[in-house]
Design a protein around this nucleic acid. Structure first.
Length: 510
RNA sequence: GGUCCGUUCGUCUAGUCAGGUCAGGACGCCAGGUUUUCAUCCUGGUAACACGGGUUCGAAUCCCGUACGGACUACCA
């Protein structure tokens, strides 16, 4: 690793919501910067004006804020290397593009997209691959094949043109990737990529190299889809006479079943989000769900994402952001694509949920409780949650576990009655009700003690009594420790429920 | 089609660079135990080195080939 200060960037184009693969790429950049005491920069690559989507940039910023991924520099914070939006840097690219033309590394091309299209089709018809390279550029409509006068005339007349990189004719490009090691490719199979478009904007390739150089980026950590253009980028650095940064190409995130890149449609179809935050498409109005809205804690989401393709080599699975940064090593990123597993994601959320305090969970649950039409003291809600939080993965699942703390059951599970309401149950519960009236104080240990003593004294079966008791209090055979439940709902409500249950269920029919 | 990358339990993965523990862990699933129910929890189980050659006393690990998968192949990023 070079001695230069570590500076990394995440450079999305604002063409839509950020997919979780993108979030992971950004996360790894962030962790890498944090680990090495470097800078992390957010740059917006909006050189394709036709794909601009309003709201996408803000969505990206909001997503990182939610995840706890912070930038030192960039569109959100400014900095000494701005502007950080590529559309505001047109003049810079223009200048460097001209430098490349002057040095003979690039040239003007006047071929129309239609002409190129036709060419590709005719090559295809002959089962050949069309490559705009040294082999064919001599026969095409570009500045290499015309006099200075011709070129100037064309330029002056406003004829649309692009600038292409002159790929070397025969050259083995040797590259190094921090994750994959040495990669070699012969430049002759590469084509003369467009560097500057006819609309006056640079392409990704030019803008990216110029910006990474000017912004003093030390490590480029990006998705694997960029690996095929790495030779071009390396050659570009060389043409400029610049020292290239180190590169690391991350494996892709795959769909849970079958193969292929995870896409937005997969999420809709398989029932899990592929976006960190909910996204409403401004054109179609379609809404795509987000991890935040699905009830994931940002810490769990980040933890889960970090372990998808990277691992510390130890058996630790739960990491705070600081711990991740401490443990992170780019060399330990895997080479192969990882399939996203919703079940494991839910497990991560469960881990974070049970480690939260009852009070914090109560605060999150209170609005849901209100939405159901119930009000309660935060202290009471916190205590109730403490009894059941081990059972759920999400705050939204809490209601199913605690509703009987707030609602007197109106119905009694017929299956449970059939199974647990014995011939003696009616009389036994009537006796128990009488017993409970006199218990003071009505706290869980005391009620339990008295009740158990009574069961023993009478010689009743523990299971028979307790199941019938639970049925009458909860309405079903579920829930936490029964004495905790009765002490929580209180003596009055307990007696009330027994009256009601005795009345509703009645003696067992013969 | 071409170029490049990849391939260990169903999934995430350790182990591969410096060949030599019944290939380890986690999620999921299954079973048993604890328990007044359900869940938690505990214990156990299920299950993988893509295939074929080679090198070697010995290969998941090194080499070659094959298959399969993926990315890229735009005046998109």
């Amino acid at each position: 690793m070079s001695q230069k200060k570590v500076r990394v960037r995440f450079a999305p184009s604002p063409t839509g919501p950020l997919h979780i693969g993108g979030v992971r790429t950004a996360l790894y950049n962030y962790l890498f910067a944090k680990k090495h005491g470097g800078d992390f920069i957010l740059r917006i690559e909006d050189t394709d004006q036709t794909r601009f989507v309003p709201g996408a940039q803000q969505y990206i910023i909001d997503s990182f804020r939610w995840c706890g991924i912070e930038f030192n520099e960039g569109v959100t914070k400014g900095g000494p290397f701005g502007p950080y939006v590529q559309s505001e840097r047109k003049d810079i690219y223009q200048k460097y593009c001209e430098q490349l033309i002057a040095s003979g590394h690039a040239y003007y091309a006047f071929d129309t997209p239609e002409a190129l299209d036709d060419l590709r089709k005719s090559f295809e018809a002959e089962k050949k691959t069309f490559t705009y390279n040294a082999e064919v550029r001599g026969q095409l409509n570009n500045s290499l094949n015309m006099s200075k006068e011709e070129l100037n005339a064309l330029l002056m007349s406003g004829t649309p043109y692009v600038v292409r990189f002159a790929m070397p004719e025969e050259r083995i490009v040797v590259m190094n990737d921090l994750i994959r090691g040495k990669v070699e490719v012969n430049a002759k199979v590469l084509d003369d990529k467009v560097l500057f478009k006819s609309d006056g904007m640079p392409t990704y390739h030019l803008a990216n190299i110029v910006d990474d150089h000017l912004m003093e980026i030390s490590h480029v950590i990006r998705g694997e889809e960029w690996l095929p253009s790495l030779p071009l980028h390396v050659l570009l650095y060389e043409a400029f006479g610049w020292e290239a940064p180190e590169f690391a190409h991350l494996p892709l995130l795959l769909k849970p079943e079958g193969n292929g890149k995870l896409s937005k449609r997969d999420g809709d179809r398989l029932g899990f989000p592929v976006f960190p935050l909910e996204w409403k498409d401004p054109k179609s109005g379609d809404v795509s769900r987000g991890y935040r809205e699905d009830g994931y804690f940002p810490e769990a989401f980040v933890n889960m994402l970090a372990l998808l393709g990277w691992n510390p080599g130890t058996e630790q699975e739960l990491f705070s952001m600081d711990e991740l940064a401490e443990a992170f090593a780019i060399e330990r990123v895997g080479k192969s694509g990882a399939k996203f597993d919703p079940a494991k994601a839910a497990w991560f959320n469960h881990q974070y949920l049970i480690h939260k305090t009852d009070e914090d969970l109560a605060e999150l649950f209170l609005p849901l409780l209100q939405a159901k039409g119930y009000l309660a003291e935060p202290e009471y809600v916190a205590q109730v949650i403490g009894l059941v939080k081990e059972r759920v993965n999400f705050v939204s699942e809490l209601w199913d576990q605690v509703n009987f703390f707030f609602i007197t059951p109106e119905e009694f599970d017929p299956q449970a009655i059939k199974k647990r309401w014995k011939a003696d149950s009616f009389n036994q519960m009537t006796e128990l009700r009488a017993l409970l009236v006199g218990i003071e104080p009505f706290d869980a240990p005391h009620v339990e003690e008295v009740t158990k003593a009574w069961i023993e004294e009478k010689g009743y079966g523990m299971g028979v009594i307790m199941n019938a008791f639970r049925l009458i209090i909860v309405g079903a055979l579920k829930g936490p420790h029964l004495f905790d439940i009765v002490s929580m709902i209180g003596q009055e409500e307990t007696l009330n429920r027994m009256d009601r249950g005795l009345h509703e269920i009645g003696p067992k029919e013969a």
